[in-house]
Amino acid sequence: MSDLDARLLAAHAAGDLDALVELYAEAAETARDDTARGFYLTHAHVYALERGHPKAAALRNRLVDMGREHPL
């Protein structure tokens, strides 16, 4: 298990939505392909929406740029 995986599991266990936003965004940056990148960005975006996190719009824009979300 990687350090990032361990931090993700700990954030899930703690219910730390702010950390989940940051960690899933970090995972997207290190993902090896677009499928994984989209998966991680989607999770980061969902947690950002739940939390009202200031990065929600930027995460959504990245998903739009990838063609995984539709522009408003």
Results as ranks from 00 to 15, higher is better:
S2G: 13
S2M: 04
D3Q: 08
L4M: 09
L4R: 02
L4V: 08
L4A: 08
D5F: 07
A6V: 06
A6M: 08
A6Y: 00
L8K: 01
A10L: 09
A10H: 08
A11G: 12
H12K: 14
H12Y: 04
A13E: 15
A13Y: 06
A13H: 13
A14T: 08
G15T: 09
D16Q: 11
D18C: 06
D18H: 15
A19V: 09
L20W: 05
L20Q: 00
V21G: 09
E22K: 15
L23T: 11
A25N: 06
E26S: 13
A27Y: 01
A28E: 08
A28S: 15
A28I: 08
A31R: 12
D33T: 05
D34C: 04
D34Q: 14
A36H: 11
R37H: 09
G38S: 07
F39N: 02
F39A: 02
F39L: 10
Y40S: 00
Y40W: 15
L41V: 02
L41E: 03
T42S: 08
T42K: 11
A44P: 03
A44G: 06
H45Q: 10
H45N: 10
Y47P: 02
Y47I: 00
A48Y: 00
A48N: 04
L49G: 06
E50W: 13
E50C: 10
R51V: 01
G52A: 09
G52C: 07
G52D: 05
P54L: 05
P54G: 05
P54V: 09
K55T: 02
K55M: 08
A56S: 13
A56R: 02
A57H: 11
A58C: 05
A58H: 10
A58L: 12
L59P: 03
L59Y: 03
L59A: 05
L59N: 07
L59S: 09
L59R: 13
N61P: 03
R62E: 12
L63H: 05
D65I: 03
D65R: 15
D65K: 15
D65Q: 15
M66P: 10
M66A: 14
M66V: 05
G67H: 02
G67E: 04
G67I: 01
G67D: 06
R68Y: 05
R68F: 07
E69H: 09
E69S: 10
P71A: 12
P71M: 05
P71K: 09
